[in-house]
Design a protein around this nucleic acid. Sequence first.
DNA 1: CGCAAAGTTGAGATAGGTCAACTATTGTGG
DNA 2: CCACAATAGTTGACCTATCTCAACTTTGCG
Lengths: 259, 259
Amino acid sequence: MAGRKSAAAGGGRTGPLAARRRSAEPDGILPCSRCQVAARCLPGSVPEGQIVQVESMVTQQRVLRAGAVLFRAGEEFSSLFAVRSGCLKSTVIDVDGREHILNFHLPGEVLGFASIYQRRHAGNAIALTTSTVCYLSFSEVLRLSQQFPELILGLLRIASRSALYTGRLTGDHNAVVRVAAFLKSLSGRLRAQGRQSSEFSLVMSREDIANHLRLAPETVSRVLTQLRQQGVISARGKAVRLLDEERLQGLAGPMLPYG
Amino acid sequence: MAGRKSAAAGGGRTGPLAARRRSAEPDGILPCSRCQVAARCLPGSVPEGQIVQVESMVTQQRVLRAGAVLFRAGEEFSSLFAVRSGCLKSTVIDVDGREHILNFHLPGEVLGFASIYQRRHAGNAIALTTSTVCYLSFSEVLRLSQQFPELILGLLRIASRSALYTGRLTGDHNAVVRVAAFLKSLSGRLRAQGRQSSEFSLVMSREDIANHLRLAPETVSRVLTQLRQQGVISARGKAVRLLDEERLQGLAGPMLPYG
DNA sequence: CGCAAAGTTGAGATAGGTCAACTATTGTGG
DNA sequence: CCACAATAGTTGACCTATCTCAACTTTGCG
């Protein structure tokens, strides 16, 4: 269980970024209001008729290419981020300089909560594939929370869920259980977004998966091979298909929140 | 790393030591004036002059004896809890029925956040020693958040901190690092409350510590022994003294939030 | 096409778990 | 108040899941 270097975190290319626009903008300009952050990322947190107003928390939208850094440890925290497309990983940094991947973020999910406490980013967030994110101005989020009580609940629920997820995933489990639970979690989250959930692409590298699950990359490989041999999944490279979800469920233990 | 039963969560013994109660309050329920929750648990989150109003979120106050259950998994979630005195542990339940101790809660800390997501308790909370807790009506908390913007921030910060803590503590560390970090964390939190921080009592059992740190109780024992032999701490039973904080720091890695 | 990076597989090393015996606390009833 | 029972903690010996190191294969990219 002693550490391995696992630090490395994709280089910092800054992809071309979409226009930055202010909240109070004329009707014609849609880029940000089309984000539908409220509807997609905070379901049920905002009364129907007022979703549009809530979009004002979106200050900009940005496209990141694989490996691009959304934020770095130590930078000032001023926004949460909603993923519109693609996939990102968010990490916390361990003083040895090692980073631990707290979570992977799929479309419809919000990241950045771990940075609220210290008012600056506690880790890095990096795009794993070409991704689009909306910047949610945190001060605006707070201001809007005044108007829309349910927004507060929505935010707290997200924060609560991620705490719960982290607490459970890192639990007292062996490698097979962790990998199985991870696959289940991904599948469930894809389904929640209305996507194909039994066949998908593991955008993250084996090393990232290993880091997240606190395993050695070799162990992840071995477990995947084992699951494949048992006919539970089929996996060739990044492509994964869940063949026997029943059994995967059994291996993973109960469904976790988050997926 | 395979699991061990570790289920046991100190049953809800209601021992006969009820004798010494200050005023005749049935069920240990006390009047809730002067909890000073805002000042103690949410420092800086509420403007000076309005602290009193915020106290309205405290619906009751209750004394729990060691082993008493504050809430159980599955129960409806309607309050957060602020610890006034004593110490509690809060857990999440793993479908095998095993529970994982997410955290220990010292005076001045708030627990219950992990239950927000599912609107019912995801685990148990149990007093480790005689403790006093304030019930913070969650609906009232939400209502007050409308009035006091900074309260929202305070809540989100607490939620953020605990996510961060969990993410880091369960990290890629060996047994010595985990135990050292745990002791450091406790010490720091005691100091934050203005208490003796280099000499304190480990109210929780070795088994609880082990569960929290994802180690076997025997391993915790061995590590404590090792630290004692190296002169880093002195530990006899529950009494612990930090002899060489410098070195403990070195073993533990950097200071964690929460600690 | 060929190199670099990512992934797989094998063999051996080890941290920490398990089982078990023993000791120290704590609580209990006579 | 003491002896004893029950519980909690410590220590030792051994075992196993996972890590480490290393060779090899596949994939991706210029």
